[in-house]
Amino acid sequence: MILPGAEPFFMPGGKKGVLLIHGFTGLPAELLLMGEFLNKQGFTVLGVRLAGHGTTVEDMSHMTWEDWMDSVRDGYALLSGYCEDISVIGHSMGGLFALLLATEEIVSHVVTLAAPIFIPEERGLAALPPREACYGGYVPKARRRLKNVPPAANRTYRKMPLISIHELVDVIEKTKGAIEEVTAPLLIMHSRDDHTAAPVSADYILSHVKGQARIIWLEESGHLLPLASERERVFEEAVAFLQN
């Protein structure tokens, strides 16, 4: 059963569509404000729900990164039936899927928000047990309750399946191996105070994609760019880029 408010969302608009992809253990509501902003500018918007997200952590533990990618592919297929032109925006791990989608399908523009090519050492990834020892194991996932956001955005999982962290690592490695195939125009947004996705990730993406790309640095948004204090700038920069 999907948690209340964790459903995917569709906002019909013009023939230019935007596919929104949330991050690891997140849910579509984290991108709802951005979706509303884009829709007011005339875009048709679809916020997908990645398999195993917005339900239970036990459900998530049975999903592979390919299951998550299939959710993205399904969203693209649905949106392409309505729109003539599709751009893709992804937050955190969703940014990695946005890049991967751009290597498989025709996309007009790509926007990554805090995409994690590198994870800071303090996150403890080096202590992750081997895959075979992770089945059935979980670790806490702390996050402060956010104000002035859609209520469902505060219903993210409070623990993570250890096996799913291995799948996240696999997504990162897959993206590293495919990123040079990205030729669509790319806007990279990252905060300098991001302690979840190391800021050097943005530099890596910029230096490895083949298409036109640039970085917009934020100063005080942490990791949650679509929900943090500088979100209006994030939305405005994204719209300006997509309309170019």
Results as ranks from 00 to 15, higher is better:
residue 99 L to S: 10
residue 93 M to F: 05
residue 54 G to E: 10
residue 1 M to Q: 08
residue 103 T to I: 10
residue 66 E to Y: 07
residue 229 S to R: 10
residue 110 V to D: 12
residue 73 R to Q: 09
residue 108 S to K: 06
residue 113 L to S: 03
residue 120 P to V: 14
residue 44 T to C: 08
residue 82 Y to E: 08
residue 233 R to D: 13
residue 216 I to G: 02
residue 224 L to D: 12
residue 13 G to H: 09
residue 129 P to D: 07
residue 138 Y to T: 12
residue 75 G to H: 06
residue 8 P to F: 11
residue 138 Y to K: 02
residue 162 L to V: 07
residue 145 R to W: 00
residue 36 E to N: 15
residue 85 D to L: 04
residue 79 L to A: 12
residue 72 V to D: 11
residue 150 P to A: 03
residue 117 I to M: 15
residue 136 G to L: 02
residue 67 D to T: 08
residue 144 R to S: 08
residue 128 L to D: 04
residue 7 E to F: 12
residue 83 C to I: 12
residue 243 Q to D: 11
residue 25 T to C: 12
residue 150 P to T: 03
residue 19 L to A: 11
residue 31 L to W: 11
residue 19 L to I: 14
residue 85 D to N: 15
residue 125 L to R: 07
residue 48 V to A: 06
residue 240 A to N: 07
residue 217 W to I: 05
residue 116 P to A: 10
residue 136 G to V: 06
residue 210 K to E: 11
residue 154 N to C: 07
residue 47 G to L: 01
residue 188 I to R: 02
residue 18 V to W: 01
residue 11 M to K: 14
residue 241 F to G: 14
residue 34 M to C: 09
residue 170 D to K: 05
residue 238 A to I: 04
residue 238 A to P: 06
residue 222 G to S: 12
residue 136 G to M: 06
residue 75 G to P: 07
residue 130 P to E: 15
residue 240 A to Q: 08
residue 205 I to A: 11
residue 133 A to N: 08
residue 138 Y to F: 15
residue 98 A to Q: 04
residue 176 K to I: 12
residue 120 P to A: 14
residue 10 F to M: 08
residue 93 M to W: 04
residue 65 W to V: 03
residue 188 I to C: 09
residue 146 L to G: 00
residue 141 K to P: 00
residue 10 F to Q: 05
residue 178 A to E: 14
residue 114 A to R: 03
residue 97 F to S: 08
residue 237 E to P: 10
residue 150 P to C: 02
residue 156 T to N: 01
residue 195 H to C: 00
residue 31 L to Y: 11
residue 189 M to H: 03
residue 240 A to L: 10
residue 110 V to M: 07
residue 133 A to F: 06
residue 214 R to T: 09
residue 123 R to Y: 04
residue 64 T to F: 02
residue 171 V to T: 08
residue 146 L to F: 00
residue 4 P to T: 14
residue 59 D to W: 00
residue 201 S to A: 09
residue 17 G to E: 11
residue 153 A to G: 00
residue 106 I to K: 14
residue 109 H to V: 03
residue 11 M to T: 06
residue 203 D to P: 00
residue 159 K to D: 07
